[in-house]
């Protein structure tokens, strides 16, 4: 079965982020979206440890560990960038100022509930960071994740079995098989990886899924 590569997924997310948007890219897969933002769009990246106008990683040897992203990797500050403390940074999310946030996930439910911070394993050390703030903070919350677990189970579920990060917060899901909108009427697949029949996608997903790909298919 053909799947979207991580870079294809990231490029697809990047295409959907409009000019002028303020965006937070979560740790892991979403970080890759930064590499695909169209150069003709002015998009301002927010990192919750206190920077708007985040630029790419510095050249080797030019790293400054006072200038890092939420994943604690060295970054740069673009012209126009600003620094701020943590309460301001999270007010930007909670206060509804941030336009888009792209997060990784363990599971997303048909209602748009998100589970991405804890597997619930009793021996796991819990760590939440900004996940819960991001989940409810941006105007549009997108998720990027593999469609299926390593065992082939759908990560899009009727109800999350992992501990929740936020309720009814996810608007769109980008997977290696499809792009799926979470709507009040249920899940709608707006794009499917070429060669995968919708019926097969629906079977793999295992929860009610409408076919919206004909209307808005992007080549």
């Amino acid at each position: 079965m053909k799947r979207f590569t991580h870079d294809e997924m990231a490029a697809r997310v990047a295409r959907d982020i409009p000019d002028g948007a303020y965006v937070n890219l979560g740790i892991g897969l979403p970080t890759r979206v930064a590499n695909h933002l169209p150069p003709d769009r002015e998009i301002v990246l927010h990192t919750e440890n206190g920077l708007l106008g985040m630029g790419p990683a510095p050249a080797t040897g030019a790293e400054d560990f006072d200038l890092i992203n939420a994943g604690k990797q060295p970054v740069t500050a673009l012209p126009g960038a600003s620094y701020f403390h943590h309460a301001d940074s999270f007010a930007m999310m909670r206060g509804g100022h941030l336009d888009y946030c792209v997060l990784g996930a363990f599971q997303v439910s048909v209602a748009g509930d998100l589970a991405n911070w804890h597997t619930g394993a009793s021996d796991a050390i819990p760590a939440v960071g900004g996940a819960m703030d991001l989940a409810i903070g941006a105007k549009h919350v997108y998720v990027m994740m593999e469609h299926l677990t390593k065992d082939g189970a759908s990560k899009i579920v009727a109800r999350c079995t992992y501990p929740l990060t936020g309720l009814a917060c996810v608007e769109r899901i980008y997977t290696d098989l499809a792009v799926i909108d979470v709507t009040p009427a249920g899940l709608v697949a707006v794009d499917v990886v070429p060669g995968l029949p919708f019926a097969e996608l629906a079977r793999l997903t295992g929860v009610p899924l409408a076919d919206g790909s004909a209307a808005v298919h992007v080549a």
């Binding site: 919750e48 943590h86 940074s89 999270f90 939440v128 996940a131 819960m132 409810i136 929740l164 936020g166």
Partner: peptide, 28 residues
């Protein structure tokens, strides 16, 4: 949650007795 941590610290410095936040609602 990180934003609640920051806001709880900010609230202490600002003399706020408690506050309602949407972060974490419905979670463990």
């Amino acid at each position: 949650p990180q934003g609640n941590l920051a806001e709880r610290i900010r609230a202490a410095g600002a003399g706020i007795g408690a506050f309602y936040t949407p972060t974490g609602y419905g979670t463990q």
